[in-house]
Computed example of a mutant assay.
Amino acid sequence: MSTFTPPVAAVAKDAHWAAKMARLRHRSLPERTLSICDDPDVKRAVTDAALALAKARTKATSAAIEQDVPEEQREQWVAAQPDVLAASSALDAAQRAQEDATITLTFRALPRPVWEQLLRAHPPTESQAEQGMEYNVETFPAALIAACHVERDVDGTVVAGMTEAEAQELLDAWPDAEAKALFTCALLVNQTLRSDLGKG
């Protein structure tokens, strides 16, 4: 009794597609962050430090040219100059201080069925629907923000995050522009296309 052996090309094709499908299944959902720093002095310090570094590099580059430092060695020479090293260190310190003073909120896109279910749970009012809105503008923003928010502890482990009530509290308490930025961040992570559709 003979045993059917599939063609080598067919086997290779199946394995190729299986590998590609495995990669497609394991794609991570996109994430987007909103960073908030309320300390103007900290932000100004970063700007000033960046300008100081740019000036130190410009001065060192001029010195390198005057001293005929070969072009291929110039970048390394400039980076090693004491004034450049000091300015670079000052910028690093200012950036660390800004990071410490910054609150970062992370939002992750929802799988399509979850997104559609959220839309169904917050349908537009009759008046809103007449204006072309696809969701209730009063209730959907807080629900979306809470659903998309991802909170991680210091070890990177996902922990409990923002509730819908907390999201609504922020939307009500923050200035209009900042409240819109909060909602927009959660909205955009669900509407930004990561793939390249190609030219056909």
Results as ranks from 00 to 15, higher is better:
2 S>R: 02
3 T>C: 08
4 F>Y: 12
7 P>D: 10
13 K>R: 11
13 K>H: 08
15 A>S: 13
15 A>Y: 08
17 W>M: 12
21 M>H: 11
22 A>K: 11
23 R>Q: 12
28 S>W: 08
28 S>K: 12
30 P>C: 01
31 E>K: 11
33 T>M: 04
33 T>D: 11
35 S>L: 10
35 S>Q: 11
45 A>I: 01
46 V>E: 05
50 A>G: 06
51 L>G: 07
51 L>I: 06
53 L>D: 13
54 A>Y: 09
56 A>K: 03
56 A>S: 02
58 T>A: 15
61 T>R: 10
63 A>D: 14
66 E>Y: 00
70 P>N: 14
70 P>H: 14
71 E>R: 09
72 E>N: 07
73 Q>F: 10
73 Q>T: 05
75 E>W: 04
76 Q>G: 09
76 Q>M: 13
77 W>E: 01
77 W>A: 00
81 Q>I: 00
82 P>K: 02
82 P>G: 02
82 P>A: 00
84 V>T: 04
90 A>G: 03
91 L>C: 09
91 L>W: 05
94 A>H: 04
95 Q>K: 08
96 R>T: 11
97 A>W: 12
99 E>V: 04
100 D>Y: 12
100 D>R: 12
101 A>M: 05
102 T>W: 10
102 T>I: 09
104 T>S: 13
105 L>D: 00
108 R>N: 00
109 A>N: 05
109 A>Q: 06
109 A>C: 10
111 P>Y: 02
112 R>Y: 06
114 V>T: 15
117 Q>V: 07
117 Q>S: 15
118 L>V: 02
120 R>I: 12
121 A>Q: 15
121 A>F: 12
123 P>R: 05
123 P>A: 06
124 P>R: 03
127 S>I: 01
128 Q>V: 01
128 Q>H: 04
128 Q>E: 11
129 A>T: 05
130 E>D: 15
132 G>C: 04
132 G>Y: 00
134 E>F: 02
148 C>Q: 03
149 H>D: 15
151 E>P: 03
154 V>Y: 12
159 V>N: 14
160 A>N: 02
160 A>G: 08
163 T>M: 06
170 L>E: 08
175 P>H: 02
176 D>Y: 09
181 A>N: 09
183 F>C: 02
184 T>A: 14
186 A>Y: 08
191 Q>M: 10
192 T>W: 03
193 L>C: 11
194 R>W: 11
195 S>A: 11
198 G>W: 03
200 G>A: 07
